Simulated scan of single mutants.
Amino acid sequence: MSIEYGEYRNNCKEKMEKIKTPCYLKIKHKLSLLFSDFEDISYNDFWLMVDNPNKKLPQKKFVITDKFDYRLPIYEINHNPFTPELNKIISEKYHLIEKYVKTQRDIKDYIVDYVNTKTPKTVILYLIDGLSYWDYINASIKYNVEPIFVNGKTTTENGLKNIVYGKNGIPIAKELYKFGYKGYGQTYWNRKNKLTDILFRYISEKNIFYYDENIHDIIVKNKQSKKYIQIYKIGLDDDAHKLREVSKKSIINKIKEIFENINILRDILNQTNQPYLIVITADHGIKWDFTKKYRKGSHGNISFEECFVPLIIIEG
């Protein structure tokens, strides 16, 4: 049976309620623990505490997820926490999510570490305006994806700053300049836009373009040089704000169109026969409401759809 757009099937809560603790728990992702009142503890810490006669065991529902042996029962939960089921607890346990998942502010560190170890000729950060992890999943794009948590407000400005400036407040272009990378940019916004100026602050204005063809030329003509290209593309945010009617089919078609353009970019990079890295993500997701006329999409609040964006890594 096929699953329609937006459907999900989980029964994590019911299964976890049957588990007796302490125990070993096999789960796909630790975020599933937020659906219960279990206390995750490492194997070593638990047994050090149990084996210490002078230490009283706290009254908590301990589960051990990192190592297993014969001393406790083992349970296995086949649960995907990254579905709209997360909306049942996200507001209540919002402050705990960063304990278990990667966030937007981790992306810059990944890029810098990758460059430091592999030194690709071209590094591309492809930013999409308004694309949720859930919409990406429903579009069935072939690239592997990881859910990434938006630090703080699910707004364009906050999300983009999280990604570009990371944890230490230094833009990626400046970080990569130390490794010899020349910065280029592409944006659909006017260069004099305040947020655009913040995002492309360390990239020369003469190196910022508005068309795909300009970026393709830079890649082909400078294939031997190290370059960092920061691309900001219109996504679903524009449709959410401006269109009076948005359908589930149109959302999927829009996402497929975005990735058709990314595939063209990837093909051009492959033709250079030089190593490259493409990092694709979004500033925030969109929460769609198909029950009310003319109120189809929004962001800025706390929901699974708004708070989780995709991270796609393409290496060549």
Rank of each mutant, 00 (worst) to 15 (best):
P22I: 03
E4K: 06
E175Y: 03
N207Y: 10
Y75W: 10
Y143V: 15
Y8I: 15
S91V: 11
E306W: 02
N214P: 06
D237I: 00
H29D: 09
I27A: 02
L176C: 08
K192P: 08
L57N: 05
N273D: 10
K206Y: 08
L195W: 13
E157Q: 05
I19W: 05
N52H: 14
Y100W: 03
K18G: 09
K161S: 10
R266I: 11
P310L: 04
M49R: 06
D69T: 13
I198P: 05
P81Y: 03
D197K: 14
R266C: 13
E85T: 02
K242G: 03
E14I: 13
L57E: 07
T196E: 15
N168D: 09
K18F: 01
K192S: 14
K60A: 09
N151D: 12
I264M: 11
L243I: 00
K242F: 14
I137N: 01
F68K: 10
K256F: 13
E92K: 01
G316H: 00
N10R: 13
Y114W: 08
G185M: 11
N151R: 02
E76H: 05
I280T: 11
Y75R: 01
L33G: 05
K153V: 10
R9Q: 15
P84G: 05
F149P: 00
D212T: 13
P22Q: 03
R295K: 12
L311V: 08
V246D: 04
V164Y: 09
F149K: 01
E4L: 09
F259I: 03
I90V: 07
S247I: 11
V150C: 11
Y211M: 12
N138V: 02
P73S: 03
F62V: 02
R105K: 11
Y181E: 09
K182P: 07
E14W: 08
L243Y: 13
K99E: 14
Y177D: 14
A282P: 07
S303L: 05
N78L: 05
N138G: 00
E213F: 06
T156Y: 08
Q104H: 11
V50G: 08
I251Y: 05
N80K: 01
K227E: 11
K61Y: 07
Y8F: 12
V112L: 11
L127P: 04
N214W: 05
K254I: 12
K254M: 07
K142D: 04
T65E: 04
E213D: 06
I208R: 06
F46H: 00
A282C: 09
F304T: 02
L243H: 12
L34Y: 06
S132R: 04
L195V: 08
G169H: 10
F149Q: 12
K248S: 06
K67N: 13
G130Q: 00
K194W: 15
D106T: 02
Y8L: 00
K93Y: 07
K142C: 05
L86Y: 02
G169S: 04
I137R: 15
Y110E: 07
